[in-house]
Design a protein around this nucleic acid. Structure first.
Length: 450
RNA sequence: GGCCCCAUCGUCUAACGGUUAGGACACUUGCUUUUCAAGCAAGUAACCGGGGUUCGACUCCCCGUGGGGUCACCA
């Protein structure tokens, strides 16, 4: 174990945000790469906005993404430590109590503790951006605690970072301007300065900071839509970081092996849902059939039941590979199912007689083709339906001779009742001989009635 | 507005003074045993602008412009 120590300092004032996940991955990769220690620190000093529910969501979400940490703290349980620092500051004349009118409630007097700002120029080195200089006079004597003793963000962060011996502060660039403030407190308290690395924020499509207004930012909502933790994590990590190998798909361990803070980009990247979908599909494709079944079947079952389609788990099992090749994420299954894309596997379709013939082909010819195909498929042994290729072989020569579209379109439509669907041989194979013949008969009857 | 940061295809990016500016996602078009999906192949598409430095700039410097962040008794 090295003495490198980093922190995950989320504030439990909302559900785990994609930005929180990114903060965590980058710190995680850096720490694990160097054998360091990760401190999870719940920054819940704002009693009004913080809640255990949010804290739990953040903990759950990060675990779901595959991340972990070594130590856990909650700022609300450390108030004595902050008060001691406050006393020191006041005793040494570096901070003072100021009685002011509350900004929240008019006419109410409150006691605020403010740091005596020496007004120096602060320069700190950022691993990603190099030296950054701020003139701190404009910061004035900023507040570090309210109601005399309740620590405010900057004080708590500085005291904790020192107390927890944090060596590297890796956070979003929205904290750049907080850094001089925190350094001022550090210096007043005589604490060492950690190494800083501020990475750019992920952006929405309109290039503004990723937020609720512009899209889904809650990790849990991606989880609910069926995204895989591995896929989301991979995308979040690689968006704004190019590993030396330039590989796009990497496991957590592979990312750890390649990670260097200096390879983090300097400009913000747009979080692109299409690319995330591609990642998710890649990860879904890596699953075994068994794993995919566990993933997809429950989603399919729910969606079908919602439509009132009788559920048949054996049939669900049979169409898994058809589903797998057309989805990127679990939610796609739900959407396809909701549109009735899978109904014909579970129930005979309702046919529109005008759509049975291929365009430009008459009802008479279509009837003739369907009868011929019915004959060929009827002659096929039931065991032949175990393989779509065999079914195709039985019909192929006839279809080629008579015109594939003219023969195969009505066959496919008879079996599915859809303009778009998997090919008729695969469908026949899945629904079996009996159902196949029944549906062809039904199409024939339908045509005769026109 | 002050301060800080950033700038290559629509999006994510490679390039570390000399390349036909490469790749990925998306898109378009073909091919593949009707349609759809998948697969395969091909294609469209970028160095923000202006000055320098240099034999030579996407690469270095300066100035614009544009974008973003931040300016709490929130974190």
């Amino acid at each position: 174990m090295s003495n490198i120590r980093v922190r995950f300092p989320p504030s439990p004032t909302g559900f785990c945000h994609v930005g929180t996940a990114r903060m965590a991955v980058l710190n995680y990769l850096f720490a694990r790469k160097h054998g360091g220690t990760i401190v999870f620190r719940s920054e819940d000093t704002d009693k009004e906005r913080s809640s255990p529910e949010f804290e739990e969501d953040i903990l759950d979400s990060l675990k779901w993404l595959g991340l972990s940490w070594d130590e856990f703290y909650r700022q609300s349980e450390r108030t004595e430590i902050y008060r001691a620092a406050l006393r020191t500051l006041i005793d040494e004349g570096k901070a003072y109590v100021s009685e002011e009118e509350s900004k929240k409630e008019a006419g109410v007097k409150v006691r605020i503790i403010r740091l005596k700002n020496p007004g120096t120029k602060i320069t700190f080195t950022d691993i990603i951006r190099g030296d950054i200089t701020f003139d701190t006079t404009e910061l004035k004597d900023f507040a570090i605690a309210r109601s005399d003793v309740d620590p405010l963000y900057h004080l708590a962060v500085v005291v904790d970072d020192a107390d927890m011996k944090i060596t590297h502060v890796i956070r979003g660039e929205d904290h750049i301007s907080n850094t001089p403030r925190q350094i001022l407190i550090q210096e007043a308290l005589g604490y060492p300065r950690p190494v800083y690395a501020h990475y750019p924020l992920h952006l929405s499509a309109d290039r503004s900071k990723l937020s609720k207004r512009t899209g889904d930012v809650a990790v849990r909502s991606y989880r609910e839509k069926g995204y895989l933790g591995d896929a989301l994590l991979n995308y979040i990590a690689v968006l704004g970081w190019t590993p030396p190998s330039e590989r796009e798909i990497l496991s957590l361990d592979e990312m750890i092996a390649e990670f260097e803070l200096k390879d983090l980009h300097k400009s913000g990247a747009v979080f692109d849902l299409e690319k995330l979908r591609w990642y998710n599909r890649e990860y879904l494709l890596q699953k075994t059939d068994e794993e995919f079944a566990v993933y997809a079947l429950p989603i399919l079952e729910d969606a079908l039941k919602e439509r009132g389609v009788a559920w048949d788990s054996a049939m669900g099992q049979n169409i898994l590979h058809i589903i797998r090749e057309r989805i990127s994420v679990g939610d796609d299954i739900k959407n396809f199912a909701a549109e009735g894309e899978f109904d014909f596997f579970f129930a005979d379709p309702l046919l529109d007689s005008t759509r049975i013939p291929q365009k430009g082909v008459g009802a008479t010819d279509t009837t003739r083709h369907l009868e011929a195909v019915r004959q060929l498929l009827g002659d096929l042994a039931e065991s032949a339906y175990r393989d779509a290729e065999t079914i195709k072989g039985a019909v192929w020569d006839y279809a080629t001779a008579e015109g594939r579209g003219a023969v195969l379109w009505p066959l496919r439509y008879a079996l599915t009742g859809k303009d778009k669907s998997p090919d008729p041989f695969v469908v026949a194979h899945i629904i079996g001989k009996e159902v196949t013949l029944r549906r062809i008969d039904s199409a024939l009857k339908n045509l005769a009635n026109v």
